[in-house]
Design a protein around this nucleic acid. Structure first.
Length: 997
DNA sequence: CTAGGGTTAG
C-alpha cells in the first residue's frame, strides 16, 4: 500500500514544477483520489500543511474522506481546527465531509455538533448524518433523523433509502422495512437504482429468502452485486443447493461473476459437500483468473471440508507468498484431521518462515493440547502468549481456553478464564456450561445460566441440552420439568438434540409417558433421535419395550436402521443370550448392508455377540474372514476365549496380535489377565502384568490391579493378594475387595474375609450382593448364627437380594425359570424329567452338596430346596426340548450355584450332551463329566460383572413392569410375536429362594 | 452520502 505514493508522484506532471499554487495541489489530491490512494492524499496534505496552504471546498472533503477511511483522527481534527475560523467552515460540502469523517471515526457526538451548527442542509448532508448514526450503531437515532428530515419537506433519495433499509435490517423491523419499500415504489426509487434494489433484497433476506427472491425476480436490471446478494442470502439460510442453482443460472444468463461471487460459491460448494462440484468451481476460478488470497483460502478450507487434505496441501504449497490467514487455514485442516505431529510441524515451519502467529492461530492450536501428553504445559504457554499480545480477554481465545482447560480437567482454570472474558455471548456461555455439566457441577452451571439471563443473553437449544446433562436422578426430574417449561415459555427453538435430552430426562425419571409424548410430538425426528430413544430404553433395562419400539420404528414409521441401531439391538440379544435372534440380525444386516465386513465396529459387535451367546466358533469364523481387523476385534477375541475358559487360545491370540503389529492397550490387558484368571494360569498372568508395564509402557490402573488381586486370590495366594492391595498406588474399590473375598471363600479364610468385607461395606453399603457374598462364606463354614445376623442386617437395611433366574432360548423364544418355579406350561414334564435325572446321577456318584443351601434347615428340606434350583429346571427343560446332539445353552443372571455345577457335570456325562451355562461371570462348558472352568468357577469376577451388567435385570423387568411379560419371543427382529409364558406367578417363588448366591 | 464477503465452540 505504501509503494504507489512515490510512483504516482513521480508520474504526475505537476510534481516537477514544485509550484505553490493551490490548483496544482488540488490536482494532485484529485489524482490520488482517482487511484484510491488514501495514504498519498494524506502525505500530500501534510506537505501542503507545512507550506501553510489549505485545500479548497472541492478538495477538502477528499482529504477528510481519506482521514476517515484511515482512521486518522488527529489529522482530521487538526484540519477541522485549522479551518474553523475560515469561511470554509460554513461550506455545506465541507461540513458534510466533517460529519462523515467524525462518524467514520466513531465520534458521533462531534458529528452531531457539526450537523447542528449547519445553517443550510441538503439531502446529502442529511444522508451523511443518518449514515453516521448507522456507522455508530445508533439505529433509533437514524430513524428519528429521517422523520425530522421529512418534516423539513426534504425528499429522500436512493442513498437515504439504502441507509434506512440497513437500519430496518439491523433492528429486524420487517414492518418498517416494508414501509420503506412502499416509499421507494411511490417515489420511483425502486427498480431505477441498483443500490436500492440490492439493499431491498438484502433486507428481505434477513427474514425470508422467498420474499427476497420474488423481489429479485421483478428486478428490471440485475447486476453482479444483486446476484451475489441473492446467492449469499441462500447460503446464510443454509440452502446451498438453491445458491448453487442460482449461480449456474447467473452464468447461463451471461452475467459476469466477480471474485466475491466465486468466494461465496466456493463456500456453498464446501457446505454442500459435493467434491466434484467443488473441483469444477476451482476450475472456474482458474479460468476467470481470480487468484486472490481470500479465494485461495476458501478453496483450502473447501477441500478440507471434503476431507481432501491432499488437495488442500497442494494448493497451499503452490502459493509462494502465503499470508497468516492461509497458514492458519492449513493448520486448521491438520488439526481437524487429528494430525497432531503434522500440525506441530506446520506451526514451527510457519514461525521459521517469519510469519507472526496471531490470535486465530492460538484458537486453532489450543484444541490440540487436550491430546498431548504435555498438553497442559503447552496450553498454559499459549494462554501466556495470548496474555502477552493482550488478547487474553478476547472472546474466541477465551472460548478455546475454557474448552482446553475443561478437556484437561482443570475446571478452576476454565472458570478463571471465563470470569475474565469480556463480550461473552451465547457461545461462550454454552462452552462453559457444558464444561461444568461434564463435571456434573450442576449448581455452577445453573449460576452461569442465571448470569446469562441477567446479561440478557438468550439461551439456545444447546444451552438447555448442556444444562440438562449436568443433572442426574430425581433432581433431574424436578429441574428438568421446570426447564422444559422455561423452554416452552420463552419459545426457545427445540432442535433434535434438545428433544432427545428432554425425552431421555423424562424416561430416566420414570415419567415414561411424558417422555414418549415429547418424542412423538417432535416433528423433526431423525435416525439419531430414534437411536437415542432405543438406547435410553436399553439403559433403563427395558429390553421388551426396546424391541417393540425397534419394530415400530422399522415397520410403521419406516425409518431405516443404521449400524448404530443394529449395534444397539444386538447388545440386547447379547445380554439375553438370544443366539437365534442374534444370528437373524446378522443375516438381516448382511442383506441390508452388503458391506458389513467393512464396518469394523459392527463386525466387532457381532463377534462379541457370538462369543457371549456361547458360540465361540461363529465368533472365530467371523474374525478369521475379516479383510481388516482392528485392536477392538482382537480384544473381543481374547475376551471371548477367556470367557469360555480357553486361556491357552487367549494367550495365542494375544501373541498373534502383537506379531501382526498391533499394540495391546489397557483393554487388551484386562481381557488377557482375566483369561489367565479363568484358566488358573497364575504364572502366565503375573508375567503378563509385568510385561504390560515393562514391554508396553502401560501404567496399570485400578482395574488391572484388581485383575492381579483376583488372579492371586483365586490361586490361593491370599497373603500376596492382600499385599498387592496394601502396596498398590491407588485406593482399592469395591471390586478389589470382592475379588479378595471370593478367594477367601474358596480357601475358607473367614478372618481375612471379615477385614475385606468391612472395607467392602464401607464402599458399597447398599449392594445386597456384598452381604450375600459374606453370608456364603459363613454358610460354607457352618457359621449359621453369623448367617442369620447378616440376614437381619440385610432386612434392617431394607435390602433385597436379587432373585436368581435361568433362561434358555429355543427357536428364538426365551423360557425363564426361577427356583421351585411351576409356572411353565410344561412344568409337570420338567419335574418328572428332573426327578429321573437326579436318580440316575446319584447312581453315578452325585451327592447333593447341601452347603449350597444357605438356610439353616434340616437336611430333608435342604434337599428339596436344592433339587429345584433354576439351573436344574432349565437343564431338564433343555433336555426335553433341544433335539438330540445339539448342545444346551443356558444363561443365568447370577453366578451358578456350586451344587448345580456338580449336577451339570454328571448330566453332561449321563446324557452325552454338551451343556453350556453362561453365568454372571463366564461360560461353563460341560462335556463328558468335566467343565471347561476346571472348577475355577467359584470365583467372582468383578470386571465381567462390569461387562455383563447392565445385564438386564430380570427381576426388575418382570416383576415391576405394568405388563408382566415372561418372555420375549421374536422369530424375526422385524416382526414381534406375543409372549407365551406368564411369569407373574414366579414372583412368589422367588421370595423363598433365600440367599442362595 | 450507498449494495454483495472475509476465518473463529465441540
Amino acid at each position: 500500500m505504501e509503494v504507489p505514493l512515490s510512483l504516482s508522484l513521480q508520474k504526475h506532471p505537476f510534481v516537477q514544477s514544485q509550484t505553490h499554487e493551490l490548483k496544482h495541489w488540488n490536482s494532485i489530491i484529485k489524482h490520488h483520489t482517482k487511484l484510491k490512494d488514501d495514504l498519498a492524499i494524506l502525505t500530500t496534505y501534510t506537505q501542503m500543511e507545512s507550506l501553510g496552504i489549505l485545500p479548497d471546498t472541492a478538495t477538502l472533503p477528499l482529504v477528510l474522506k481519506a482521514c476517515g477511511r484511515l482512521q486518522a483522527i488527529e489529522k482530521g481534527k487538526k484540519l477541522h481546527n485549522s479551518i474553523s475560523s475560515t469561511n470554509l467552515a460554513s461550506d455545506i460540502r465541507v461540513q458534510t465531509a466533517l460529519v462523515n469523517f467524525y462518524s467514520k471515526c466513531g465520534m458521533l457526538q462531534n458529528a452531531l455538533n457539526v450537523f447542528d451548527e449547519m445553517t443550510e442542509r441538503d439531502v446529502v448532508s442529511w444522508n451523511a448524518m443518518i449514515s453516521g448514526c448507522v456507522c455508530c450503531y445508533e439505529y433509533q437515532k437514524a430513524l428519528r433523523l429521517f422523520s425530522q428530515m421529512q418534516k423539513g419537506n426534504l425528499k429522500a433519495n436512493s442513498v437515504t433509502i439504502v441507509e434506512l433499509l440497513q437500519v430496518c435490517g439491523e433492528l429486524l423491523e420487517l414492518r418498517s422495512g416494508k414501509e420503506i419499500h412502499g416509499y421507494s415504489l411511490r417515489h420511483g426509487l425502486f427498480n431505477t437504482n441498483p443500490h436500492v434494489d440490492s439493499s431491498l433484497i438484502g433486507f428481505y433476506l434477513k427474514f425470508d429468502p422467498w420474499i427476497a427472491s420474488l423481489v429479485f425476480q421483478t428486478l428490471a436490471s440485475r447486476n453482479t452485486i444483486s446476484w451475489n446478494t441473492m446467492i449469499s442470502g441462500y447460503i446464510n439460510h443454509g440452502d446451498f443447493l438453491k445458491a448453487l442453482k442460482l449461480f449456474i443460472l447467473m452464468l447461463n444468463e451471461g452475467f459476469k461473476c466477480d471474485s466475491i461471487t466465486m468466494l461465496v460459491v466456493i463456500q456453498a460448494c464446501a457446505e454442500f459437500g459435493d467434491h466434484g462440484l467443488g473441483m469444477q468451481v476451482h476450475q472456474l476460478v482458474i479460468k476467470f483468473g481470480y487468484n486472490n488470497m481470500h479465494i485461495v483460502n476458501s478453496l483450502v478450507n473447501m477441500y478440507n471440508k471434503y476431507a481432501d487434505l491432499k488437495s488442500s496441501y497442494e494448493l497451499f504449497t503452490s502459493i509462494p507468498t502465503k499470508d497468516v490467514a492461509l497458514w492458519n487455514s492449513m493448520l486448521s485442516c491438520y488439526v481437524e484431521s487429528g494430525l497432531i505431529n503434522e500440525s506441530i510441524h506446520l506451526l514451527n515451519k510457519m514461525q521459521l518462515e517469519g510469519i507472526k502467529v496471531n490470535e486465530r492461530t492460538i484458537v486453532i492450536i489450543l484444541p490440540l493440547c487436550a491430546n498431548l501428553s504435555n498438553g497442559l504445559i503447552n496450553g498454559k504457554s499459549l494462554h501466556a502468549y495470548a496474555f502477552k499480545i493482550g488478547k487474553e480477554r478476547n472472546k474466541h481465545i477465551g472460548n478455546s481456553l475454557v474448552n482446553m482447560y475443561t478437556l484437561l480437567n482443570c475446571v478452576e482454570d476454565a472458570t478463571k478464564v471465563f470470569n475474565k472474558m469480556k463480550d461473552i455471548d451465547v457461545i461462550s456461555c454454552n462452552v462453559f456450561i457444558s464444561a461444568l455439566a461434564n463435571n456434573k457441577l450442576k449448581v455452577q452451571s445453573c449460576e452461569i445460566f442465571t448470569k446469562m439471563l441477567e446479561l440478557e443473553i438468550k439461551p439456545n437449544s444447546q444451552t438447555i441440552t448442556s444444562i440438562l446433562s449436568a443433572f442426574d436422578g430425581i433432581d433431574l426430574l424436578k429441574f428438568g420439568k421446570s426447564i422444559h417449561g422455561y423452554v416452552m415459555k420463552c419459545g426457545i427453538e427445540i432442535d433434535a438434540s434438545l428433544n432427545t435430552a428432554l425425552t431421555e430426562m423424562y424416561i430416566n425419571c420414570e415419567d415414561e409417558s411424558m417422555g414418549m409424548r415429547v418424542f412423538e410430538e417432535f416433528p423433526e425426528k431423525d435416525l439419531i433421535s430414534w437411536n437415542s430413544l432405543l438406547s435410553t430404553y436399553i439403559k433403563n433395562n427395558q429390553p421388551y419395550k426396546t424391541l417393540l419400539l425397534f419394530h415400530h420404528m422399522v415397520t410403521r414409521v419406516k425409518v431405516k436402521p443404521n449400524f448404530v441401531t443394529i449395534i444397539n439391538i444386538l447388545s440386547l440379544y447379547t445380554h439375553l443370550s438370544n443366539l437365534p435372534q442374534g444370528k437373524f440380525l446378522h443375516a438381516y444386516t448382511l442383506r441390508r448392508f452388503s458391506l458389513l465386513n467393512y464396518d469394523l465396529p459392527l463386525v466387532n459387535a457381532f463377534i462379541t455377540m457370538y462369543s457371549r451367546c456361547g458360540s465361540l466358533e461363529y465368533a472365530e469364523n467371523l474374525f478369521n474372514v475379516l479383510p481388516k481387523t482392528n485392536l477392538i476385534s482382537w480384544n473381543a477375541m481374547i475376551a471371548g476365549y477367556g470367557m469360555h475358559g480357553n486361556g491357552d487360545e487367549a494367550m495365542l491370540t494375544f501373541s498373534k496380535m502383537v506379531k501382526q503389529g498391533f499394540t495391546p492397550n489397557r483393554v487388551t490387558f484386562i481381557s488377557a489377565l482375566s483369561a489367565c484368571s479363568h484358566s488358573g494360569m497364575i504364572q502366565k498372568g503375573l508375567h503378563l502384568f509385568y510385561s504390560m508395564i515393562q514391554d508396553f509402557g502401560i501404567t496399570p490402573e485400578l482395574v488391572h490391579y484388581n485383575c492381579l488381586v483376583d488372579l492371586l486370590a483365586r490361586g490361593g495366594l491370599l497373603n500376596e493378594a492382600k499385599n498387592v492391595i496394601d502396596t498398590m498406588p491407588m485406593a482399592p474399590d469395591a471390586a478389589t475387595w470382592r475379588a479378595l473375598i471370593v478367594g477367601c471363600r474358596v480357601y475358607s479364610d473367614t478372618h481375612l474375609a471379615k477385614t475385606a468385607f468391612e472395607n467392602l461395606i464401607e464402599l458399597e453399603p447398599k449392594n445386597p450382593g456384598n452381604y450375600v457374598l459374606l453370608s456364603n462364606i459363613y454358610a460354607a463354614s457352618g457359621l449359621w448364627d453369623e448367617v442369620k445376623s447378616l440376614r437381619l442386617i440385610l432386612e434392617n437395611k431394607g435390602l433385597k437380594k436379587p432373585a436368581g433366574r435361568s433362561w434358555i432360548v429355543i427357536k428364538s423364544q426365551l423360557h425363564f425359570f426361577a427356583a421351585g418355579d411351576k409356572s411353565h406350561p410344561q412344568s409337570e414334564t420338567i419335574y418328572r424329567k428332573l426327578t429321573s435325572l437326579l436318580t440316575f446321577v446319584k447312581e453315578m456318584g452325585y451327592v447333593p452338596d447341601l452347603r449350597w443351601v444357605l438356610h439353616d434347615e434340616d437336611d430333608e428340606r435342604k434337599m428339596v430346596r436344592i433339587s429345584c434350583h433354576s439351573e436344574k429346571l432349565a437343564i431338564a427343560f433343555g433336555l426335553i426340548n433341544v433335539s438330540g446332539g445339539s448342545r444346551i445353552l443356558i444363561t443365568k443372571n447370577l453366578r451358578i450355584c456350586g451344587d448345580c455345577h456338580e449336577f451339570s457335570k454328571y448330566v453332561s456325562k449321563l446324557s452325552r450332551r454338551m451343556i453350556i451355562i453362561r453365568d454372571a461371570t463366564r461360560f461353563h462348558h460341560f462335556v463328558d463329566g468335566l467343565c471347561s472352568c476346571k472348577d475355577y468357577w467359584k470365583q467372582f469376577q468383578f470386571f465381567w460383572v462390569k461387562i455383563f451388567i447392565p445385564l438386564i435385570d430380570m427381576t426388575r423387568q418382570f416383576s415391576i413392569g405394568s405388563n408382566n411379560l415372561g418372555c420375549i419371543c421374536f422369530s424375526n427382529p422385524l416382526a414381534i410375536q406375543h409372549p407365551t409364558i406368564d411369569m407373574s406367578s414366579s414372583q412368589n417363588s422367588s421370595a423363598s429362594i433365600g440367599m442362595q448366591e
